[in-house]
Design a protein around this nucleic acid. Structure first.
Length: 878
RNA sequence: GCUCCAAUAGUCCAAUCGGUAGAGACGAUGCGCUUAGAACGCAUGCGAUGCAGGUUCGAAUCCUGCUUGGAGCACCA
């Protein structure tokens, strides 16, 4: 029996070295076993790993280790999403070169990642900022350009006139740039886009087949793609009222049935008609410039007060030449969606209703809910968007919404103006093309040359990669690449004249849209992928990452995979067969009386009669316990993985991360629970050491029969094995851990029972103890691999537990001879009956009805029905 | 604003199909061990499953309406 505590600080680096030296996590592309590709979203090298990374990689690691034990050729690689804005911010603020900053961060974070004990194949590591990676990305860009999947397009962007840079929506705070404080302008700029919209329908339809993705994520993507069926209607304009004799306004609507409820037309500030009208109307021009200041973020546009400007232009109702509708420029109409123009039916659309209520245009309900008297049906503040019958709509009256939509479409399709129909059925998508141009230095250069004569010229293959220059300065605002004295000046590959390089770089989402494919053969110097290898190793069987990537990253990757297929780099459509979105790690916040935030490590928590109380460790000063929030530097509610690993070891951190909360939900960091995990590690260590002593008496051969204790233990072991095996496959790690704990409790009880020297132990029990300890160690080995190796060693097992095969379940042990059923009368529990597992329904029914409690509850009433749910319940209906 | 998610014991959470609300943990209390504490061992679970309705023999689970908390919304990654 050992009295020594398990020393993680000593054991963990030792086992990490062993794994490393024996290269057991390196997967070979010529391995003939079935493959299993586990991937966690690769990190941005910010400098230090975050506790959220520990959770993400632990989840993946458990699965990777489990599948390895199950006999799969597991691919579990790691790399770095290394381009992006923070490196440039560091360059500006701390005068360090982005490249040096990035690679230093990678080195630091790699060291941290290694300390977690992850079963990663580091031989495949790369950073997206390595020219050996992005040269292939540039090649694929050119392939996509040739295939018509990349184009130039005008886009409206947030422009900071002082920093001379485009801003993300989140960098625009109250209409001003986050760093400069300058009022942000909306500027139209020429951008490179990927034609993701060519795949709108396919990306939507294929979601059906992604049955190992969370419904939530599929729904988010479905909404993002936003397919809607509707009608394109050409409204005639009263040319006398238009700025330059325009005579038509095209709108898209999904509600053509409500056409007789129309009160106004609204067009986007960017609509050509608005632009033309503004040219002749300074007030309108000012209005347009005002509403453009609010920014491009959807949430801001939607929550801003509805504003409109009557242009004086009139549109003509398609079913009534005498019906004129005023045309407004409105701040809630987007040029990017549909045609940038709508007709407003206030009674049945909340935005339109808010608008007319502000400008006094009134409303006419045209859909009346079933059972409501049309005469008394009025709309005041809340639009009605439910079902009903058409009213106030001439020839549509009495129809359902669907019939009315159809009738309007039919009539307008058949009505010609000029030589085109007035209406046309159309499918519209909300999805826009993917703008990839960034006016930034630290990104993958877009490999094209702008020639005054030849226009856009692709960089020839033999000149790839277009490498980022390193001698750049961040003294001036704007794009450092643009300011470089020589880099952009080149000769045109076509005509030989002087030309200039594209100085925009690619969105970092491009880098992360194919890294999973590169991992399958990162050694290929001549092509992005080796198709034979990529096609065999892909798709990723289980991808794991934060839900914040549920839309963009995953959708872009799905598109990019199709684009790679179209350009011959890969032969599949869907990159991720299984997707899992993990929750965040959150923590309480602490605040001093003066409002300043305090780190958890500085706070002492006392639990008393009237709840929890916090004081400052240093001074004893009272601290307010605030909301539980996502860990953030500004609120100081962070926990440093290095501290945790130094104090408790990686296994404790891993076990804590996996316990309690389901992986897809947020987990609250709790020191008490971390200590609980730490105590459990020691308990397992003692248990295994005790079991080793007792198991010494075990015969080599399996005994023919087992006594009660041995059988109890074996049932607990194999029951746990069964539950953990199926639980890990479904990523229900918190439940798996509970089953391991449960098994451990039973194991301890059995071990305490003999209470005698090992030599006297019954051979069958000793054998069962040895078997149970092997199963136990293997069960927790994916979660706490270091402790498991240490236990495996004291058990005298050959080799590494990380390389051992998953134990075989003996199903016979899981079958019980009898089963206890709950007996209900009219849905209320009245008793229990225990019957043989094989008992038939009449026998069960008779046993249930024979219970005194059942007779009493029935109170002489006849039995109307008996419902028997096998192995669960008997319900007697009286 | 739009779209979506969640809510079970003091706390974190279990509960294949709609079938006994309790697996596991944290905390608390008591006992044992101990000079004492830590550690260790043992014991202790009444919550109308957020609220109001509905469907059903039967609802934590399905439906409707609310309340509260959270996520995403296109140049952060």
């Amino acid at each position: 029996m050992t009295s020594e505590r398990y020393n993680a600080r000593d054991a963990e680096p030792r086992w990490q070295r062993q794994w490393d030296e024996q290269a057991i996590f390196v997967s070979k592309n010529d391995d003939s076993r079935p493959k299993y590709y586990v991937l966690e979203m690769f990190p941005y090298p910010s400098g230090r790993i975050h506790i959220g990374h520990v959770r993400n990689y632990t989840l993946g690691d458990v699965l990777a280790r489990f599948m390895r034990a199950k006999g799969f050729n597991v691919l579990h690689p790691m790399g770095w999403d290394a381009f992006g804005l923070p490196a440039e911010n560091a360059a500006i603020e701390r005068k360090v070169a982005p490249k040096a900053w990035t690679y230093d961060n990678i080195a630091a974070m790699k060291k941290q990642l290694r300390s977690i004990g992850l079963s990663l194949d580091w031989s495949r590591e790369f950073a997206t900022c390595d020219p050996s990676y992005y040269k292939h990305q540039q090649k694929m860009f050119l392939d996509m350009l040739a295939a018509g999947l990349a184009e130039r397009e005008k886009r409206k962007l947030n422009w900071d006139p002082v920093d001379m840079t485009v801003l993300a929506n989140e960098q625009v705070i109250d209409g001003r740039g986050w760093r400069s404080g300058a009022v942000v302008e909306q500027r139209e700029m020429s951008q490179w886009v990927f034609k993701i919209t060519k795949y709108s329908q396919e990306l939507l339809s294929a979601l059906e087949g992604l049955d190992r993705w969370p419904d939530k994520v599929r729904l988010m993507q479905r909404n993002w793609i936003g397919r809607s069926e509707g009608l394109l209607i050409r409204f005639a304009l009263d040319a006398a009222t238009t700025p330059a004799g325009e005579n038509e306004l095209k709108i898209f609507t999904t509600r053509p049935d409500t056409l007789f409820g129309a009160k106004f037309m609204a067009i986007s500030a960017d609509h050509p008609l608005a632009q033309a009208a503004a040219a002749k109307n300074p007030d309108l021009a000012e209005f347009i410039s005002d509403i453009k200041k609010i920014g491009t973020a959807q949430s801001i546009i939607d929550t801003a007060e509805k504003q409109g400007f009557d242009t004086g232009i009139h549109a003509v109702h398609p079913f009534d030449p005498s019906w004129k509708l005023p045309v407004y420029v409105a701040n809630f109409v987007l040029m990017e969606y549909g045609t940038g123009a709508i007709f407003g039916c206030p009674a049945h659309d909340q935005r339109d209703l808010d608008f007319v209520n502000k400008y006094g245009l009134g409303n006419t309900p045209v859909v009346c809910p079933e059972g409501q008297d049309p005469k008394s049906f009025v709309i005041t503040d809340t639009a009605y968007d439910g079902d009903g019958r058409m009213i106030n709509s001439r020839f549509l009256d009495g129809m359902t919404i669907e019939q009315a939509k159809d009738e309007v479409a039919r009539r307008l399709e058949n009505e010609l103006r000029g030589n085109a129909p007035v209406g046309e059925r159309q499918v519209n998508f909300r999805l826009r093309d993917w703008g990839i141009s960034r006016q930034r230095y630290w990104g993958c250069p877009i490999p094209v040359i702008h020639c005054p004569k030849c226009d856009v010229v692709p960089v020839p293959d033999d000149q790839l990669p277009v490498v980022l220059p390193e001698d750049v300065s961040f003294d001036k605002p704007g794009n450092a690449l643009d300011h470089h004295p020589t880099w952009k000046h080149v000769t045109c590959p076509k005509c030989g004249g002087s030309a200039s390089r594209e100085t925009d770089t690619m969105d970092t989402f491009v880098d992360s849209s194919w890294y999973f494919a590169r991992f399958t053969d990162p050694w290929n110097e001549t092509a992005p992928t080796t198709p034979a290898v990529a096609n065999r190793m892909l798709p990723v069987d289980q991808y794991i990452g934060g839900v914040e990537h549920a839309i963009l990253h995953l959708l872009y990757s799905r598109f990019f995979t199709r684009a790679m297929k179209a350009t011959g780099h890969i032969a599949l459509d869907e990159p991720f067969a299984g997707m899992f979105t993990q929750g965040m790690v959150v923590h309480e916040t602490y605040q001093k009386a003066d409002g300043s935030w305090v780190q958890p490590a500085e706070v002492k928590i006392d639990v008393g009669g009237n709840g929890r109380r916090a004081t400052l460790l240093a001074t004893g000063e009272d601290v307010t316990i605030g909301a539980i929030e996502k860990m953030s530097k500004s609120k100081k509610n962070t926990v440093d993985p290095d501290d945790i690993i130094a104090t408790y070891g990686a296994d404790v951190a891993r076990w804590f991360m996996l316990s309690d909360s389901p992986p897809d939900r947020d987990v609250i960091w709790s020191d008490e629970r971390v200590q609980g995990a730490s105590r459990f590690v020691q308990r397992l260590w003692r248990l295994v050491n005790d079991a080793v002593e007792l198991g010494k008496a075990a015969p080599a051969a399996r005994p023919a029969a087992f006594g009660d204790d041995a059988l109890l233990l074996r049932k607990a072991a194999h029951g746990a094995l069964d539950k953990v095996t199926s639980g890990v496959e479904r990523l229900h790690f918190n439940v798996c851990l509970a089953h391991i704990r449960e098994f451990t409790n039973t194991f301890s009880e059995v071990l305490q029972r003999p209470g005698q020297p090992a030599a006297d132990l019954a051979p069958d029990l000793a054998w069962a103890i040895r078997e149970a300890s092997q199963i136990l160690v293997q069960l927790f080995s994916p979660m706490m691999p270091h402790l498991a190796e240490e236990c495996w060693q004291v058990m005298g097992q050959p080799g590494l537990v990380s390389e051992a095969n998953w134990p075989q379940i003996e199903r016979d042990l899981l079958v019980e001879d009898s089963v206890t059923l709950v007996v209900q009368v009219n849905g209320k529990k009245r008793g229990e009956v225990t019957v043989a597992t094989a008992a038939q329904n009449p026998e069960i029914e008779a046993a249930a009805l024979a219970l005194d409690a059942v007779k009493l509850a029935l109170d002489g009433k006849p039995v109307r029905k008996v419902i028997i749910v096998p192995k669960r319940i008997v319900n007697v209906v009286g």
